[in-house]
Write a protein that binds this DNA or RNA. Structure first.
Length: 540
RNA sequence: GUCCUUGUAGCUCAGUUGGAUAGAGCAACAGCCUUCUAAGCUGUGGGUCAGGCGUUCGAAUCGCCUCAAGGACACCA
């Protein structure tokens, strides 16, 4: 049980004693910002006073009188009615043993029963390399998956491949054009075709597999180009993502989803909301939470992206997912309510789908924005960026801020190995702790009453916050909170390191206790870095 | 025009869901290595929390209005 939990419980019992019954999350314990306010504080007396129309300080006194004071050095009323808690050293140092005993699994939350989260992210079309926008979605999606699991949720990580649309046709034609070029034959690159270098590379592979077998001009062989191109592109995506430490449990293909008469059946079950107008088929999403109806089948008979995607979301739900989370680019904003509406037509709650919008990444170079276009093949690729600045820096950079905020990616800063990068700060803290531990021949001990320096208390309090941070980050779908925590803990580590000499052969007891403390710190830093997919180097 | 996101120190961002004197990191300046890694630490300066009105014991946080930036409003994906 961590400190906030303990105080929470104490407060609830105290309130029960004086016949006040409140909901559990009405009680808020917060870490005090200033040391003169103790270690933790609660505003419960003020919140209750306005409800019960009594004096907050008097109420606070009543609560204090009836609270169990074990483990507390002091408890006092301050300001307008805050209750400040001063924890005993023994309670504060409990966390060290808790970390050392649980090790890697420290911070793991209780299993959330009856919940299965399906988390879809990246889902980039296999028509080219991943660019920075995808990379941010990948880093955030993958980190979120790790955090949710740590917090106790069951998670399925999923990638949706649109292998049935016009984009793949363009890919096939672009590949065909490049293949023809290798034989000095002309095949017009379609206007919307892909011009990236990677297509030329794939064309060479195509040639070495099939030779000149598919050089006829007819349109009939386009399928073979589509399939070959997609397979190669998808392999590349998987490789890049894998190297970026981003993984998936399931790849779902559009062609598989709409196999057989899935869409016909769906049209049947949803027929009450489907109508024809101007030769197109519409879905009456505006009957729910959308602001207008949406086309599902164009007048030329082709399905829109939306239509099979409904089938896909229903498919995910049919696999027992209780919560769907889509990590999408901010430009998909208009898509949210139409998909929610479609799901509601099928009897699901609006909340069964949650969308995390990833705001645009703007690339800035020489003070000016660099425009990206995947089609023209001039986009900054994830692979290139990773090669320049390393996986750790890229992942940390993309995750360290709220997904909803715009991200200016300064190309020069990112492409130069810069010591101002916060990831080094954290890794350095870890490496330092690790170095001291490896140098020492003094055994760890649990004489934590010897740890009385300010910086040591900061570390202990920081460690005991970890459980709560993990839960918060999971609940709010906010991986950046882990980064904030890492910075804070690393800062305390550096402060402690600068102020307190750890290894001292003349004081084995204190040294042993300090070694236990820094061992715990190194475990938690590594643990937290793992949640955002960043490595913890033993040496730097 | 409607909707979404954002607006906090020169720059990049936090701010524990309404709490106490608004915080970090860069950048600037001044210090700290005979001792476990100076990729570090300590200190100084830096603020109309975009602006206004309201809600209450209390607002950067909640509500309304205004301003600014970006995005979305397809028989595109």
């Amino acid at each position: 049980m961590y400190n906030e939990e303990l105080l929470h419980k104490k407060l609830r019992f105290a309130l029960q004693k004086i016949d006040i019954d409140v909901k559990e999350d009405f009680i808020i314990i917060e870490a005090a910002k200033d040391k003169i306010h103790g270690d933790y504080a609660s505003n419960i007396a003020m919140k209750l006073a306005s409800k019960l129309k009594t004096n907050p300080r008097a109420l606070a006194q009543q609560i204090i009188d009836s609270i169990d004071k074990e483990g507390l050095d002091k408890i006092e009323i301050a300001g307008p009615g805050f209750i400040n808690f001063f924890m005993s050293n023994e309670i504060l140092s409990n966390v060290i043993d808790r970390v050392l005993n649980t090790n890697d699994s420290f911070g793991t939350g209780d299993k959330k029963t009856g919940k299965l989260i399906n988390l879809e992210y990246v889902s980039a079309n296999p028509t080219g390399d991943l660019h920075l926008g995808h990379a941010r979605g990948a880093a955030i999606g993958d980190s979120l998956a790790r955090i949710l699991k740590k917090a106790g949720y069951s998670v399925i990580r999923e990638y949706y491949v649109n292998d049935a649309g016009a984009q793949i046709l363009h890919l096939g034609e672009s590949l065909k054009a490049r293949y023809f070029e290798l034989y000095d034959k002309k095949y017009d690159l379609p206007e919307d075709g892909y011009q990236g270098e990677d297509i030329i590379e794939i064309a060479k592979q195509f040639k070495s597999k099939y030779g000149d077998k598919y050089l006829e001009e007819s349109d009939e062989n386009i399928e073979i180009f589509k399939e070959f191109g997609m397979e190669k592109e998808l392999d590349k995506l998987k490789n890049d993502l894998n190297e970026f430490r981003v993984n998936f449990d399931v790849f779902s293909f559009e062609t598989t989803i709409r196999q057989g008469n899935v869409l016909t059946n769906l049209a049947n079950t949803m027929k009450d909301y489907i109508y024809k107008k101007d030769g197109a088929t519409y879905l009456a999403t505006s009957k729910f939470v959308d602001d207008k109806d949406r086309v599902i089948i164009k007048s030329n008979g082709e399905a829109t992206y939306f239509w099979p995607d409904i089938a896909y979301h229903l498919n995910k739900l049919s696999r027992k997912a209780t919560n769907l989370i889509d990590v999408l680019g901010a430009d998909h904003h208009g898509y949210i309510n139409r998909m929610k509406s479609a799901l509601m037509m099928n009897g699901y709650r609006e909340e069964s789908l949650e969308v995390e919008l990833i705001q645009m990444v703007r690339i800035v170079k020489d003070g000016e924005e660099v425009k990206m276009s995947k089609r023209l093949g001039n986009a900054i690729k994830l692979r290139d960026l990773v090669q320049e600045v390393g996986i750790d820096a890229v992942r940390y950079f993309f995750v360290s801020r709220d997904a909803a905020t715009h991200l200016d990616f300064d190309l020069e800063l990112a492409l130069s190995q810069s010591s101002s990068n916060p990831v080094f700060y954290a890794q350095y803290a870890y490496a330092r702790m690790n170095n001291v531990l490896s140098l020492s021949t003094i055994p760890l001990n649990d004489k934590y009453n010897l740890l009385i320096d300010e910086t040591e208390f900061s570390l202990m309090k920081s460690l005991s916050e970890y459980d709560k941070i993990v839960q918060d980050a999971a609940k709010e779908r906010a991986p950046y909170k882990i980064c904030n925590y890492i910075q804070k803990l690393s800062g305390y580590v550096h402060e402690f390191y600068a102020k307190c000499r750890i290894l001292d052969v003349n004081n084995v007891d204190l040294t042993g206790a300090r070694l236990s403390l820094i061992k715990a710190c190194s475990i938690v830093i590594k643990n937290a870095l793992e949640l955002i997919g960043v490595s913890a180097p033993e040496k730097m």
